[in-house]
Design a binder for these strands. Structure first.
Lengths: 230, 230
DNA sequence: TATATATAGAGAAATAATTCTCGATTGCAA
DNA sequence: TTGCAATCGAGAATTATTTCTCTATATATA
């Protein structure tokens, strides 16, 4: 019974639930830690306890990656790590261009951990001539005017936008012109791109909203109910 | 009929849906743009068209803020902007401490836009003595050992973590010790805090997972179905 | 003034996501 | 070998979120 029945990624027509995609890296990180500490197997219960998630949810998420477990034993950590990598596309290296060599751009370039996800920032671009012709964390910074041609020549299909909001659309245009398939947009602005291009916005204001509203509400409630320490 | 019937934030026991909270800043930004361009009113239809969202959803989100509109006319932009600010807690200034004066920390400190949300980073902290006693974007960088006391003295209740993953828990501990109510965690690591503390994780790997999985799937599908251009 | 139309608001329906339930399987211990 | 406990896997039930439908209303126009 070791025939590995249909081990491939399930290619349903419907997309994968985004909440699932956002949880998989959490499992991935934990699994690597567990593996480093010498463990070979893991159960949904354990992952759930560790990450404060429902075990069934963990099981369903893992199911998406195509990994099968065994009752009483759980999953093989190595197998699971590989399955998640494969499922997320982190098993192949993807080269990326970064637009906007400010401190956020620099922070991302210095973020060593992306190589673990197969993401490799190969060059940075900026409108400011003073920032060009430098090397930042081992990557050349070039003028944005060079972006589209270079992107096509190097067959880079992934773009990262770390420019101020007002310049975001221009940056997106350059990346689209260069043939980008996917854009990771850190600018707090909506960008217009052709439908074929996949965009994920990393809008800090949206996250901040969640936090500050919860905090505000909590303060308001504690003030209205118990006076000092409920 | 100008009596403003119960204009306050609806304090239901259940929390506000997180998707709603994440959309409100998008409306907020658009509304400010519209206001700057001279408009006085706006309809859900218009917001929806602009942001590619269902008008009903926009209406439900706006409903949460307690704003009432008028048929055929829509909402008063000014009123709506204020309501969103109030609802998110962006109408009051909240002071914050930032832990980790690396390039990500620097990027956040330089991000002028946060004042618009009432967030004011008043000081930064780092373990590295070489980074201390400097001024970064007008904020003093101090040694982390000073954090808890200073935080209590200054009555700062908001913390931002921009340290590497391995130091995240220590940073969280310091903030909790200093009496933090809310923590915005940029480190790709789960942090353990008392239940009373609200945490929002800004985990780049989670966003990247969404993007890279979609890209991978798209590439896989286009390769398996149409050869070149479907 | 009457009519047409865009829109808010309320509630129903549909869809998506999470959590619960139960049966089957496996390894461990008696 | 037998019984027990942990766990996966499948599907049902629940809950959350989005979308649809309908009605009332305000404005503009004829």
């Amino acid at each position: 019974m070791n025939e590995s029945k249909e081990r491939s990624i399930p290619e349903t027509v419907k997309g994968v639930p985004e909440p699932t995609l956002r949880r998989l890296p959490l499992y991935y990180r934990l699994l690597k830690q567990l593996r480093d500490s010498g463990r070979a197997g893991v159960s949904c219960t354990m992952i759930g306890t560790e990450l404060k998630l429902d075990p069934t949810q963990v099981r369903k998420d893992i199911e998406m990656t195509g990994t099968v477990g065994r009752p009483k034993v759980g999953y093989d950590i190595n197998e699971l790590v590989c399955a998640i990598e494969r499922f997320l596309g982190w098993d192949n290296t993807v080269e990326a261009f970064l637009v906007g060599a400010g401190s956020l751009g620099e922070a991302l370039m210095g973020y060593g951990g992306f190589t673990e996800c197969g993401l490799q920032i190969v060059a940075a671009f900026d409108v400011d001539p003073n920032k060009c012709h430098r090397v930042m964390h081992g990557k050349h910074v070039r003028h944005v005017s060079k972006l589209p041609n270079l992107m096509r020549r190097m067959k880079v299909r992934f773009g990262i936008i770390t420019v101020p909001a007002v310049e975001a659309q221009q940056a997106a245009n350059l990346l689209v012109e260069g043939g980008a398939l996917a854009i990771w947009n850190f600018a707090p602005a909506k960008i217009q791109v052709p439908e074929r291009v996949i965009v994920t916005n990393e809008d800090l204001y949206c996250s901040l909203a969640v936090l500050s509203q919860k905090m505000t509400r909590k303060l308001a409630l504690s003030r209205s109910k118990g006076g000092s320490k409920p």
